[in-house]
Computed example of a mutant assay.
Amino acid sequence: MCAQTIQRICTPITPPGTIINPENPKIKATPLLCGNEKFTFSLGSPSREQLPPLIKAVYTNTGGVAIEAMVFIDSSIPVTNFSVYQNYTTCSTGAPQLTLYICPFLADGNPPANPETDSYNLYPLNLGLKIQTPNGQLIRSIQIFLWNEDPETSRGTVTTVPPPTE
């Protein structure tokens, strides 16, 4: 195998879109605690599939969007940081949609492997974003993914964003 082929295999795949907050792209991963311990729960039988994040989003008085997400990570993985990518798309009805990709990282800067598990830690993630769609329309929904380089095991969910109140 030539050096160029080896480099291509080892290069991490990044999600589509642009990274939010490029000046400081790493968001500290702080697990939810129950007392002094990480809140850990088990769910069904072991699987390699990730759980989709939970999300809530509302427009703020300043015209931005406040996003609260809960990310589920295998409890054996010592995640230290997240990076978040955003991409403007349209949903199936043609309305503007924001797609977010949450990328977990280990202390060495690499993405974690995706082992078989049934035990998860919860990581709250709060984002405040200024939304500027290419055509100036309001975002009607947000799709959010827990990014994994394997598209078959990346998991996502969609939530509607209520229109701002006057």
Rank of each mutant, 00 (worst) to 15 (best):
I13P: 03
I13V: 15
P15M: 10
P16I: 09
P16S: 11
P16W: 06
G17L: 07
G17Q: 06
G17D: 06
I19H: 06
N21H: 15
N21Y: 08
N21V: 03
N21P: 07
E23H: 02
E23V: 02
E23A: 11
N24P: 08
N24H: 13
P25W: 04
K26F: 06
K26W: 01
I27N: 01
I27K: 02
I27G: 00
K28W: 06
A29W: 01
T30S: 13
P31E: 14
L32A: 11
L33I: 12
L33P: 03
C34K: 14
N36D: 13
E37T: 10
E37M: 07
F39T: 09
F39N: 07
T40W: 00
T40L: 08
F41V: 05
F41R: 11
G44T: 11
S47Q: 07
S47K: 11
E49K: 10
Q50D: 12
Q50N: 15
L51Q: 10
P52Y: 07
P52M: 05
L54D: 03
K56D: 07
A57T: 02
A57R: 00
V58D: 14
V58C: 08
Y59H: 15
N61W: 04
T62Y: 11
T62S: 13
G63L: 11
G64E: 07
G64Q: 07
E68D: 15
A69V: 01
M70E: 09
V71T: 14
V71D: 06
F72Q: 14
D74G: 02
S75E: 03
S75P: 01
S76Y: 07
I77W: 01
P78K: 11
P78M: 05
V79N: 02
N81V: 02
F82K: 09
F82E: 04
S83T: 07
S83F: 00
S83C: 08
Y85N: 13
Y85W: 14
Q86W: 03
Y88G: 04
T90C: 09
C91N: 15
C91G: 14
S92T: 08
T93A: 05
G94H: 13
A95Q: 13
P96Y: 01
L98S: 08
L98I: 12
L98V: 09
L100R: 01
C103I: 11
P104R: 01
P104L: 01
F105L: 10
L106G: 08
L106E: 08
A107V: 04
D108V: 13
D108C: 10
G109S: 04
N110C: 04
P111N: 06
P111C: 09
P111V: 05
A113V: 10
N114R: 14
P115L: 03
T117K: 09
D118E: 13
D118W: 13
S119A: 09
S119G: 02
S119E: 07
N121K: 06
L122T: 14
Y123I: 08
Y123W: 07
L125W: 02
L125R: 04
L127R: 03
G128E: 11
L129Q: 12
K130P: 00
I131F: 05
I131G: 02
Q132N: 15
Q132H: 15
N135L: 14
Q137N: 09
Q137A: 05
Q137D: 06
L138N: 13
I139Y: 00
I139W: 00
R140S: 11
R140C: 09
I144T: 08
I144Y: 06
F145M: 14
F145E: 11
W147P: 14
N148P: 09
